[in-house]
Computed example of a mutant assay.
Amino acid sequence: GADHRAHKGLNNRIEGSHRPTRKREKIMGRFKSQQQAQRFLAAHDQINAIFKPRRYRLTANSYRHARADAFSLWDDYAREMTA
């Protein structure tokens, strides 16, 4: 009586756990190699952590302040890089 879906990977927990990463890779234009994808994702995750604080842990006001701080920090970094 178990529901079994026959498509490759649907019942594979390992492939399911990689789904968010693979979705990001697809959106970013398909990398040519696994190393290129890893380099991008390593940098992307650090930046993403700054701009997307854990929303479920914050009140709306705290979230807005965290986002404003992140953009302020990013502007400072951008000014340093162009100077």
Rank of each mutant, 00 (worst) to 15 (best):
A66M: 07
T21N: 09
R55K: 15
H44M: 03
Q34C: 00
K23Y: 14
S62C: 06
R57S: 12
R54P: 01
H18S: 04
Q46D: 10
Q38A: 13
M28I: 01
A60E: 15
Q38P: 00
S62V: 03
Q34L: 09
R64Q: 09
A49H: 07
R24T: 11
I14F: 13
N48S: 13
S17W: 09
K52R: 14
I50F: 10
R55M: 09
Y56T: 09
R64D: 06
Y63W: 09
H65Y: 12
Q36C: 01
R39W: 03
N48E: 13
T21D: 07
N12T: 04
A49T: 06
L58S: 05
T59G: 09
S17E: 14
R24K: 10
Y56H: 14
K26F: 11
D45W: 04
A43C: 04
F51C: 11
A43H: 08
E25A: 13
I14N: 08
Q34V: 06
S17D: 10
R57C: 12
H18D: 06
S62L: 10
A68N: 08
R19W: 09
A43M: 09
T59P: 00
H44D: 12
E25C: 05
Q35W: 02
A37I: 00
K52A: 12
S62Y: 03
F51K: 08
H65C: 06
R39F: 07
A42K: 15
P20G: 11
P20H: 11
S33L: 02
E25Y: 06
A43Y: 04
A66Y: 06
N48I: 04
F40K: 02
S62G: 04
R54I: 12
E15F: 11
Y56R: 14
R30Y: 11
R54C: 05
Q46K: 15
K32L: 01
G29Y: 03
K32N: 05
P53Y: 05
R19I: 11
F51T: 13
Q35S: 08
R64T: 05
S17M: 13
T21L: 15
Q36L: 05
D45H: 07
K23C: 05
I27K: 15
R39Q: 08
I27Y: 10
P20S: 11
G16T: 03
T59L: 02
T21K: 14
F40S: 00
R67A: 01
